[in-house]
Amino acid sequence: MATIDPRVQWQVENLLARYVHALDDDRLEDWPGFFSSTGRYRITTAENHAAGLPLCIVQADSPAMMRDRVAALRHANIYEAQGYRHVVSSTLITRAEGAIVDAVSNFHVARVMHDGATLLFATGRYIDRILLGDAPLFEDKRVLLDSRRIDTLMAIPL
């Protein structure tokens, strides 16, 4: 594999860091802004992915659908107050051609409930296609959960 320009590696990791801090800081309104105008976001399970089955737990085919999800979380859906703490690591750039970069990263997400109950809520991989530029953006973000089993409900995006 060709050597990855350290600056590209840094841009990708910086995008991921800013992304997870926005979610963990409850800046959900900023979430769609990490995607390009044609960006897609999907959460599915490794089991569905391996079986070639297309069902997702969350599927947003456009930033508009992401903004709709944020509006639903803020104004319609009912769930107990909770937050996440993401740990992202082992970001591996699998392809870099011009301004398009594919990367895979590991993540752990702890969910912290309002009463203090803390759970290792999700582990898995981010499989990302990123458009570099002045402000790198996700063109496609797939969240592949290691487990098919979700505790109680999944309100906030991963």
Binding site: I43, P54, L55, C56, I57, V58, Q59, A60, D61, M65, R69, A72, A76, N77, I78, Y79, E80, I150, T152, L153, M154, A155
Partner: peptide
């Protein structure tokens, strides 16, 4: 038609717009 079903699957499951609450209310 498959894509329509997949897009509408946003309504169901643990993150579903209209079924998310069922996971909480019974608890």
């Amino acid at each position: 038609r498959t894509e329509l079903r997949l897009a509408q699957a946003n309504l169901i499951g643990p993150a579903g717009f209209i079924s998310m609450e069922d996971g909480a209310a019974t608890g």
